[in-house]
Computed example of a mutant assay.
Amino acid sequence: MDWMAWTLPTAIFFATIAALLVIFTILAIRFPETPRRGILRIETTRGDRLFITLLGSAFINLAWLGVVEAYQPYALIVCLVYAAAVFRWV
């Protein structure tokens, strides 16, 4: 990976997203799901909720960096709470 000049945290980040995509693909094959309606009143599947979670987490981290300027791992806690809420109610 030297040609990309990745740091270890960057590699872990993208490996985690790749692993999530593989896991969600396996889940979709093994346990097909029908879309459900949540609080947003749109039909979503597990993959849709994963996308909403990843997109929202990116915005949470950017806002955290721009507004709070505090220790960044605290943003991870906010993102985990957000992810739990998305998978539960969206």
Results as ranks from 00 to 15, higher is better:
residue 3 W to C: 10
residue 3 W to M: 11
residue 4 M to Y: 09
residue 4 M to W: 12
residue 5 A to W: 09
residue 6 W to K: 02
residue 6 W to M: 12
residue 6 W to I: 07
residue 7 T to Y: 02
residue 9 P to S: 01
residue 10 T to A: 13
residue 10 T to L: 12
residue 10 T to W: 10
residue 11 A to M: 11
residue 11 A to K: 08
residue 15 A to M: 06
residue 17 I to Q: 01
residue 17 I to K: 04
residue 18 A to C: 07
residue 19 A to D: 03
residue 19 A to G: 05
residue 21 L to Q: 13
residue 21 L to N: 08
residue 22 V to E: 05
residue 22 V to C: 09
residue 22 V to H: 02
residue 23 I to V: 06
residue 23 I to D: 03
residue 23 I to E: 02
residue 25 T to V: 14
residue 25 T to R: 13
residue 26 I to P: 02
residue 27 L to H: 08
residue 27 L to W: 03
residue 28 A to H: 09
residue 29 I to Y: 09
residue 29 I to N: 09
residue 29 I to K: 06
residue 30 R to M: 10
residue 30 R to V: 07
residue 31 F to L: 08
residue 31 F to W: 12
residue 32 P to K: 01
residue 32 P to N: 00
residue 32 P to M: 06
residue 33 E to D: 09
residue 33 E to L: 14
residue 33 E to N: 12
residue 33 E to H: 10
residue 34 T to Y: 10
residue 34 T to I: 13
residue 36 R to E: 11
residue 37 R to N: 12
residue 37 R to D: 14
residue 38 G to K: 02
residue 38 G to V: 02
residue 39 I to M: 13
residue 39 I to E: 03
residue 40 L to I: 11
residue 41 R to V: 06
residue 42 I to F: 14
residue 42 I to G: 07
residue 43 E to W: 10
residue 43 E to D: 14
residue 44 T to Y: 00
residue 44 T to P: 00
residue 44 T to L: 06
residue 45 T to E: 09
residue 45 T to D: 06
residue 45 T to M: 09
residue 47 G to I: 11
residue 49 R to N: 01
residue 49 R to M: 05
residue 50 L to I: 09
residue 51 F to Q: 09
residue 52 I to N: 01
residue 53 T to L: 04
residue 56 G to E: 01
residue 57 S to Q: 05
residue 58 A to F: 15
residue 58 A to I: 15
residue 59 F to N: 07
residue 61 N to A: 13
residue 63 A to H: 02
residue 64 W to H: 05
residue 64 W to F: 14
residue 64 W to Y: 13
residue 64 W to N: 01
residue 65 L to V: 11
residue 66 G to N: 12
residue 66 G to Q: 15
residue 67 V to L: 15
residue 68 V to K: 07
residue 68 V to C: 09
residue 69 E to D: 11
residue 71 Y to W: 14
residue 71 Y to I: 07
residue 72 Q to D: 08
residue 73 P to V: 02
residue 74 Y to R: 07
residue 74 Y to T: 04
residue 75 A to M: 04
residue 76 L to D: 06
residue 76 L to E: 08
residue 77 I to N: 05
residue 77 I to A: 13
residue 77 I to S: 10
residue 78 V to S: 00
residue 79 C to H: 00
residue 79 C to L: 05
residue 80 L to A: 15
residue 80 L to W: 07
residue 81 V to R: 05
residue 81 V to P: 00
residue 82 Y to C: 07
residue 82 Y to T: 04
residue 82 Y to K: 01
residue 83 A to R: 04
residue 84 A to R: 14
residue 86 V to I: 13
residue 86 V to M: 00
residue 88 R to P: 00
residue 88 R to W: 14
residue 89 W to I: 11
residue 89 W to P: 00
residue 90 V to F: 15
residue 90 V to S: 11
